[in-house]
Design a protein around this nucleic acid. Sequence first.
DNA 1: TCATGTGAACTTATTCACAGCA
DNA 2: TGCTGTGAATAAGTTCACATGA
Lengths: 267, 267
Amino acid sequence: MATGRTHRPATRSRGIPEATVARLPLYLRALTALSERSVPTVSSEELATAAGVNSAKLRKDFSYLGSYGTRGVGYDVEYLVYQISRELGLTQDWPVVIVGIGNLGAALANYGGFASRGFRVAALIDADPAMAGKPVAGIPVQHTDELEKIITDNGVSIGVIATPAGAAQQVCDRLVAAGITSILNFAPTVLSVPDGVDVRKVDLSIELQILAFHEQRKAGEEVAAPEEGAGAVSPPPVSPHRAPPGAPGADSGRQGPDGDVPAVMPA
Amino acid sequence: MATGRTHRPATRSRGIPEATVARLPLYLRALTALSERSVPTVSSEELATAAGVNSAKLRKDFSYLGSYGTRGVGYDVEYLVYQISRELGLTQDWPVVIVGIGNLGAALANYGGFASRGFRVAALIDADPAMAGKPVAGIPVQHTDELEKIITDNGVSIGVIATPAGAAQQVCDRLVAAGITSILNFAPTVLSVPDGVDVRKVDLSIELQILAFHEQRKAGEEVAAPEEGAGAVSPPPVSPHRAPPGAPGADSGRQGPDGDVPAVMPA
DNA sequence: TCATGTGAACTTATTCACAGCA
DNA sequence: TGCTGTGAATAAGTTCACATGA
């Protein structure tokens, strides 16, 4: 579909698919590694393998950026690194503030990958007065009172929220009011923001739950799993009670995996 | 998405879309909050708002689980909490091991949401002998040498990798060899695993890059953005004219946002 | 000859819109 | 009456497969 590029000098790609955008960082990482090894060119096949995707997908992704490869040869590593970096906006400096300097916030501040690639921790902010002034990862923590000033003075547009869930929305509101338009949220809460503000979330608990879902399924597929693996089945927290919502007794529609009965059940 | 092969049609029926599975934890969280407030029922509209999705999507998602609602009324909170928990496999205990107890690993170990919902940190593992025995989040760190034994003895099937990128694949291989079939990877590397093993990744750097992409685009849309702190902002996307990728010798003519210089990245 | 670039086919996901039931 | 549950319509994303050009 990406038609209309055949020879369209200016105003390019007005719309790289979101799925593609999400993979560009992956390609970039793989390319950077190749670059460091001074590899001059790569084929879509090799690069795809390094990035963990298949080559057709990679080529399609790149096609949205333009024709940066050479048929019969492959892609010029340095050139692609540059093009993708530019596309992602990494050729410019992005000051970032981290709010909530607890265990996680401190870990993020210390995270090396942060500093690289155009991102720079402009400030660390925490609500605890006792934290003020303390250096974390070499950067002194500042009190929440300074939040607005910090953002304005440093022209920050990206904020990272690593506060407890209860404080996240409030912090978010202040960040947005101060001018932040992109938020990376580590707090286990749904943030509501006005149009124009992007929010991406990173949630350990959700990821684990998704893994558990698949894990449970695997266990169920094994014909007769002698596996002591997943441990004994313990009927946890959930409250097994009443049957179907409204109509007791006769129920129509389809049921859960095993009929009904909310009795505790593991695979 | 998890790295790994595609899913097979599976054993008839039971085919909950991956996108739906990924949202179940979100619904569960919202429902749990309602449950704690003793709210008896919710409409798809209310719950959808709380979970940050639209109601049509939510109803469609629930339709894959079964008919757990009551027309004209809504969903019984407690009942739904139970059904979703069961679907996700949270009615059983999931021992988890965290490998790599650095800043991040320690933060994860301390993370409360971990303990809740069926997950239990069975062990903390680190390669540094000096860490051995030290308690982190109340759990003594064990040396990597014990990895296999720990996994076997505790029947662990989910592993969290929080090691430096360089050690991730090796740790991954050992985890898999020891019986782990689900991995949550925090290391900025693509892990290769055999079929049957699920890998989900959490990558700060990638998330930031995605945000930067959109952020850059916003800046480009503003007709005349003042932009103070972000340094030299380049004009929006540009130039597709194919630049000679393989062009030998000097960099012939490749265009950047401002027309050139494919210098080697920010790094 | 060989690997890119891309229409076309296919698969998955989202949204619409309304029938149907409490 | 009001809200769920769901086919049908759309949209988004992936894979195929091959013409194209170096």
